[in-house]
């Protein structure tokens, strides 16, 4: 009996964000006169259940339109769900959406509110609006800009920076005024590797020192595999799988991905190649095949040993990625990024 109670208590204590049965629909839009049909009603969150644990970097992975941003907007109090429950650190955010601002730091995709400010003033003002007094806000601003390597451009308007630097400046503003939960919507879009490393180092430091929990929205598969502790794969407003990246990849462990890039036209006169065509995903000169390991080895032998080799420009054999998981789980859309 005690075991059961302990387990239940532990689960409740470690779950920083709990989502149950979350539903959000956007109503159908009527088309304009003369312009044909409008859009159909969309169930952007279609019964989502989710637990994010303390100190975890938890990812929402899915292509555009999968419902990631809609879910995040509900978690940040920007959007009211039609049904379901959201609890963050024990607070009911469906009943009290305004409490979200006092629990989390949010980095949205848009920076228009900060665009015309300098990097330093954007960070300081955001800190002031998180309730810090002027002195603390300035001290935290200086520390965060230093940490992210932005001190030199602190006096420049965000508008005049490159896309990646702009994103990093907005990320800096998100960090001023410590919060136990960080919600980051595609934080590294447009960033160079140095800036990306700065972001992940800053996230790791907050996790190690303050036990911060991070909810990350991404459609970048490589990033998801390297930085996330657990990931929820989303498609069509639903969570179609939720596990560690390794755990998810184990679902398709018996498959490998074979990419063939032809110099020019594929050698369809070779019967083995012609037979492969039906199962390949073709993008220009690149054929992508998902095959059982044995079969993949045989195909590589055929392609590299036979007459087809002359037509071959390049080939790669890779273990499955989260994109393969997404497709294997029945993901219907393209649009995940591998970079």
């Amino acid at each position: 009996m005690s075991t059961g109670t302990d387990q239940a208590t532990a689960a409740r204590d470690t779950a920083v964000i709990r989502v149950r049965g979350l539903v959000k629909s956007y109503p159908a839009l009527r088309g304009r006169r003369g312009s044909g049909k409008g859009t159909a009603a969309v169930r952007a969150s279609d019964g989502i259940d989710l637990d994010v644990r303390r100190g975890e970097i938890f990812g929402l992975l899915g292509p555009n339109g999968a419902g990631k941003s809609t879910l995040v907007r509900q978690l940040t109090g920007l959007l009211r769900p039609d049904a379901g429950a959201i609890a963050m650190l024990g607070h009911d955010l469906v009943r009290h959406p305004e409490r979200a601002a006092r629990l989390l730091g949010y980095l949205g995709q848009e920076s228009t509110a900060l665009d015309e400010l300098t990097v330093g003033l954007a960070a300081e003002t955001t800190g002031r609006l998180r309730g810090l007094d002027t002195r603390t806000a300035r001290a935290e601003r200086d520390a965060v800009l230093e940490e992210l390597g932005l001190t030199e451009i602190a006096g420049r308007p965000i508008k005049r920076l490159s896309g990646g630097q702009r994103r990093l400046a907005c990320f800096a503003a998100t960090l001023v005024g410590e919060r136990p939960v960080l919600v980051l919507d595609e934080p590294t879009t447009g960033m160079d590797p140095v800036a990306r490393r700065a972001v992940w180092a800053a996230v790791d430091r907050r996790r190690a020192e303050h036990g911060a929990t991070v909810l990350l929205v991404t459609h970048n598969v490589i990033e998801a595999e390297t930085v996330l502790d657990r990931v929820a794969v989303m498609d069509g407003g639903r969570v179609i799988a939720c596990d560690t990246p390794a755990g998810l990849k184990a679902l398709v462990a018996d498959e490998v991905r074979l990419d063939l890039v032809w110099r020019d036209e594929p050698p369809l006169h070779v019967p083995e190649i012609a037979a492969l065509r039906a199962t390949a995903i073709i993008a220009g000169r690149r054929w992508t095949l998902r095959l059982p390991q044995e079969r993949a080895r045989a195909v590589v032998a055929e392609v590299t040993g036979g007459p087809a080799f002359a037509a071959l420009d390049d080939f790669t054999l890779a273990t499955p990625s989260l994109e393969d998981v997404y497709l294997a789980l029945g993901g219907r859309q393209k649009g995940l990024v591998k970079a």
């Binding site: 907007r73 989390l104 848009e110």
Partner: peptide
Amino acid sequence: SGGLDHYATLPV
């Protein structure tokens, strides 16, 4: 442009 989100997610 969604810029109001910035203010709406701050306790201001």
